[in-house]
Write a protein that binds this DNA or RNA. Structure first.
Lengths: 237, 237
DNA sequence: CAATAATCGATTGTCGACAATCTGCGCCGA
DNA sequence: TCGGCGCAGATTGTCGACAATCGATTATTG
């Protein structure tokens, strides 16, 4: 049993996880570390160091890193190094413009299904987000907002759309989290989401399109200011 | 340092000998083998066999396979096996519905740029496609059609959109190629693309939206008939 | 002193062997 | 005969060591 977990004094938050595959667990842990800011945007990620830290060999670790590269969270240069992605202003602008298109498409799909349970669930997610905002818990608010929007995509049942959202979500979360840490206060606001959900429940597709576009424009503007003038240092994938 | 991915020229005659990294070279070769039908949809892909066939160890081969899994061309089950994806009717339907949304978004981006060179290039790609169709070269027609639509995405300069298109293109090509081999005749038709390009040049966004939707609906209907009743055997990722 | 070549450390790429897991088949007992 | 059990083959998962490449630093030379 060479898979015996090594001593690992300290922490030991995770006892053992050999059940599924190391690749999956490491990918989750590494993704969390990046999104939590434990590894800063632009920082280099060294295979040997991480492998030792996780207590595994470089094989599974490399495959986990490949996955994060495909998710757009890491950028690798052969024989040279791998860095956490550092989003540029254009990258953020692209993410927001893409979200407008995808989210409107999502609502078209949802409405075509006439799924009534969707309304209840949407309200529930919105309530959860509102609670986090009122509690001024910015970190939880970011998660709640991602889950609110994520639910919209999930509700479509459109696997390809969900897959596409997931390929964007990580970068969006990375940006929000970095922005929050750098600016201190921020976190999602109430007003925008109140209108967003109101329109979503109103079946007025044109109004919702306008609201989504405005919702994104506000978020995009708010965030671009922070990034402007700070050139990306580690490629923008 | 802006990370430039390795240029992947569409042409294939330039036999870039494997001295970049095996991973990239193998990923290209394996992808080509799948799209050419040398490996059938649903067929199992065995690491050891492929590694020997390519003359490399399993390490680089596994990473190449991981990449194709992320592209949606392979489906893996831990400790059990990896198969070429076998698209279901729903999968194809999703691809086409997604293309409607993405391609309309692409034209909105292009028009916002007022790029005049775009028109000339679009016509050039359309002429190339028409030539392939008139020559009744179905295989070349499929490539030409992919390049026509691909150019639309490229012309947006929207990296995230291009990335998304590339994540779909492989599966679309896989389906088209498999469909063509199974049905013999088919290949793209002239009429649809003539109208498509005509509308694209007309600056009439509403007409183009309708045309794209109709274009996709025709393609989707044409292809669904073939797949209907044939259950996917290897997961639909 | 400047420009170029050689060298060294760091990091990733690759390999071959071993371990863990799944699947199908044969065996045994009720 | 039938159903559960275990064994063997096949396939993927993991490991540790070695080789190739890159970047920067230093030595060399005009």
């Amino acid at each position: 049993m060479t898979v015996e977990a090594k001593g690992r004094a300290g922490g030991s938050v995770v006892a053992r996880v050999p059940k599924a595959t190391f690749r999956a667990h490491i990918a989750d842990a590494l993704r969390a570390a990046i999104l939590n800011g434990n590894i800063e945007p632009g920082a280099q990620v060294i295979e040997t160091a991480l492998a030792e830290q996780f207590g595994v060999s470089r094989g599974p670790l490399r495959e986990a890193m490949r996955q994060l590269i495909d998710e757009g969270l890491l950028v690798a240069v052969p024989y040279t190094g791998t860095h956490v992605v550092d989003l540029s202003v254009d990258d953020v602008r692209e993410i927001y413009s893409m979200r407008v298109t995808l989210e409107i498409f999502a609502f078209e799909q949802i409405w075509a299904r006439r799924d009534q349970a969707f309304r209840r669930e949407l309200v529930a997610r919105h309530d959860a987000l509102t609670a986090c905002i009122d509690a001024q818990d910015d970190a939880a608010s970011i998660i709640a907002e991602l889950q609110l929007h994520g639910f919209v995509y999930e509700a479509t049942g459109h696997k390809l759309l969900i897959r596409t959202w997931e390929s964007i979500r990580g970068r969006l979360q990375l940006y929000w989290a970095a922005h929050h840490r750098a600016h201190g206060i921020r976190g999602p606001r109430r007003e925008g989401h109140d209108r967003y959900v109101e329109m979503a429940l109103a079946d007025d597709i044109e109004a919702l399109k306008a609201e989504i576009a405005d919702h994104m424009a506000r978020g995009g503007r708010q965030t671009e200011d922070f990034l402007r003038g700070r050139p990306a240092s580690a490629g923008t994938a």
